[in-house]
Design a protein around this nucleic acid. Structure first.
Length: 437
RNA sequence: CGGGGCGUAGCACAGCCUGGUAGUGCGCUCGCUUUGGGAGCGAGAGGCCGCAAGUUCGAAUCUUGCCGCCCCGACCA
């Protein structure tokens, strides 16, 4: 992509409403634009990141055997009356009436909707286990939206729902998602910690939230320092016993958010207990028959008797992750994208557009990078050098290649790692090899 | 939802107290000079001063009401 043809409205100064790093940087990098409180438009650069995160989440869900569907954003109120949540959910639920005066709502989550799909199509235990997920926009009418995209009212979320014959089997589904989450966050370049969690309005008997550490996190977390040394589970098929072993390993260390932390019950030695702040980026629940019972989602078991299906639900805040990743990966100059989710792999800077030698060298490398399948953002504008450097640092692409008249005289380009700041002088061919490899 | 603050050019802000031709910096357009870490000079474009009512000869400025946004708290993926 040539920057001269791209839409990336960057800001030199900080917008006054943005207090935390991710909000400030997303606005400055031209990733999003606020529409109203807690509601944002996604501009090209931001959407690319959002899609990249979505892709990784999707791949890991598919690998874990979940099947993608897409449920509506607008749901009928009657469905929510069946589970009693229409009244319970409170003002956070945005209620709408259509032209026929039918009561509708903008979905804050989809347990009822998916249970309805399940009950009208699945009748036998032979069709289990089943796990359906979708990646869809949700709306929660937060009293006080804040932190930009991190706590918006409209947000993109992956939510999966598992269906099994009994609680023992649905705990296998729960464990499978637990492990899939560990792999997902690792691929996103994040170190996530599972915390034993409160089940809140979703209900249920077992729940973990996944947090990433960041100073601007909304809740305080307490954990045993060794949990950070655990290895991400490798890629392989696992039996239920093996799944349980991974979950047991990850939950054997103490880890709790402030509301679940009881200092008097915490047995971790003082020197081993770390207190930091965390951002919740995922939450999984095992709630058994709470919804299936209320909504009549039964299956016939091997014994010929109907039983309510046992369920769990599994959320990942996809749009929130964009902010969360920036919170945990930035410096004073801007964002530092992990390579897997970066909107482009490399930024190519032409220090002197209009200079024949520079233009030729840049155009040539640009074409070769594209041919090699490397995503490249080529700053071919007539801006000054300083502005180009600052902008490239701001948007945080993992690599920068700078081509200017000075280096070209000796046949080299500057190759810079955004995260470490390390610069090397390489021939254009070597730069290409490093990026295409 | 309690408490506080702010709405003036795309962005950041001054002007308001004490009513009288709407300003500054950045950004944008054009020209010249510059050219390796957000350049200099010159010339421009761009505003229902959040909305409405009121006071007044006259309102960005005073009064009242409304709307929007932000911050702290309680709440939350």
């Amino acid at each position: 992509m040539r920057l001269s043809r791209f839409f990336m409205p960057t800001l030199k100064e900080d917008p006054k409403e943005a207090q935390i790093a991710s909000h400030r940087l997303m606005l400055r990098a031209g990733m999003v634009q606020q529409s109203s409180a807690g509601i944002y438009s996604w501009l090209p650069l931001g959407l690319m990141v959002l899609k990249n995160i979505e892709k990784i989440v999707r791949e890991e869900q598919n690998k874990a055997g979940a099947l993608e569907i897409l449920m509506p954003t607008i749901q009928p109120a009657d469905l929510w009356r069946e589970s009693n949540r229409y009244d319970d959910y409170g003002k956070e639920m945005l209620r709408i009436t259509d032209r026929h005066n039918r009561e509708m709502l903008f979905g804050p989550t989809n347990e009822e909707q998916v249970t309805d799909i399940f009950r009208s199509n699945v009748k036998s235990y032979k069709d289990l286990p089943l796990n359906l997920y979708h990646i869809q926009w949700k709306f929660r009418d937060e009293v006080r939206p804040r932190f930009g995209i991190m706590r918006g009212r409209e947000f993109l979320m992956k939510d999966a729902y598992s269906f099994d014959l009994d609680p023992e089997k649905s705990k296998i589904a729960y464990n499978r998602m637990f492990v899939a989450y560990l792999k997902t966050y690792a691929r996103l370049g994040l170190q996530a910690i599972p915390l034993r969690a409160d089940t809140g309005p979703i209900g249920g008997d077992l729940s973990h939230e996944f947090i990433i550490l960041a100073d601007t996190g909304e809740s305080e977390v307490f954990y045993h320092k060794d949990i950070l040394n655990l290895e991400t589970p490798e890629e392989k098929e696992r039996t239920p016993e093996e799944l349980q072993a991974v979950v047991d390993e990850w939950t054997s260390y103490y880890a709790a958010a402030d509301e679940m932390h009881k200092p008097e019950e915490c047995t971790v030695a003082e020197g081993d207990l770390i207190t930091r702040r965390g951002i919740e980026v995922g939450h999984i629940f095992h709630f058994g028959d709470k919804y299936s019972k209320a909504m009549g989602a039964n299956v016939t078991g091997p014994d010929g008797k109907d039983v309510p299906v046992s369920m769990g639900s599994y959320g990942i805040g996809v749009s929130r992750l964009v902010g969360g990743i920036i919170e945990s990966s930035h410096d004073e100059n801007g964002i530092i994208w992990p390579e897997e989710i970066s909107p482009f792999k490399v930024g190519l800077i032409n220090l002197k557009s209009g200079d024949d030698a520079c233009d030729t060298a840049c155009d040539d490398l640009y074409a070769k990078l594209q041919n090699a399948g490397v995503d490249v953002l080529y700053d071919d504008t007539s801006d000054r050098a300083g502005g180009k450097f600052a902008k490239m640092d701001l948007i945080g692409l993992p690599w920068q290649v700078t081509i200017g008249p000075r280096g070209l005289k000796s046949g080299v380009v500057e190759f810079k790692n955004r995260a470490t700041g390390v610069k090397e002088e390489l021939s254009p061919e070597d730069a290409l090899k490093r990026l295409a490899g």
